[in-house]
């Protein structure tokens, strides 16, 4: 079975295991984009590298949280309506508002099993720290990691 890992940039990657495709946090804004969170700023310093069809066949999306440097407008448009989506609580609303229906909200330490194609996949949400230092991590709040 072939395993491929394609890092797009930032927190965005596509993991292909055989014909199963899992992707994480679609953030595809241009290099130089600044997201202003009032207290904090986030600046992209490299261009994301991807082709338009990279996201066509994603079976499962993992969304860590709803900040724009992890889930932006361009990225949102790449999530197909047929894909399963695992997200944390605070990203649920924005995904729902964008008509993404196959949503599974996982709180930290919760697990969910998916049966996609011929695969059985168990996804566990694990505590993750988001921020460049403890202060920004505190303000950024709880985000999910996935195992």
């Amino acid at each position: 079975m072939e395993i491929k890992f394609n890092w797009i940039g930032g927190a965005t990657f596509i993991l292909s295991i055989g014909n199963l495709t899992i992707a994480c946090d679609p953030v595809l804004c241009e290099k130089g984009t600044v997201q202003d969170f009032f207290w904090f700023k986030s600046k992209r310093i490299e261009q994301p590298i991807y082709s338009e069809n990279d996201f066509e066949a994603i079976d499962l999306w993992l969304i860590t949280h709803n900040h724009e440097d992890h889930l932006d407008e361009i990225g949102m448009s790449k999530i197909s309506d047929t894909a399963e989506i695992v997200c944390n609580k605070n990203s649920y609303t924005i995904l729902k508002n964008n008509k993404k229906n196959k949503l599974s909200v996982l709180d930290r330490k919760e697990t969910k099993t998916f049966f996609i194609k011929d695969y059985t996949i168990e996804i566990k949400a694990i505590p993750a720290i988001h921020g460049i230092n403890p202060l920004s991590a505190f303000f950024a709040g709880k985000v999910n990691g996935y195992f």
Binding site: W39, F40, K41, S42, K43, G131, I132, S136
Partner: peptide, 8 residues
């Protein structure tokens, strides 16, 4: 330094 994240 404490409030700006630069990411690739």
């Amino acid at each position: 330094f404490f409030t700006t994240k630069r990411w690739k």
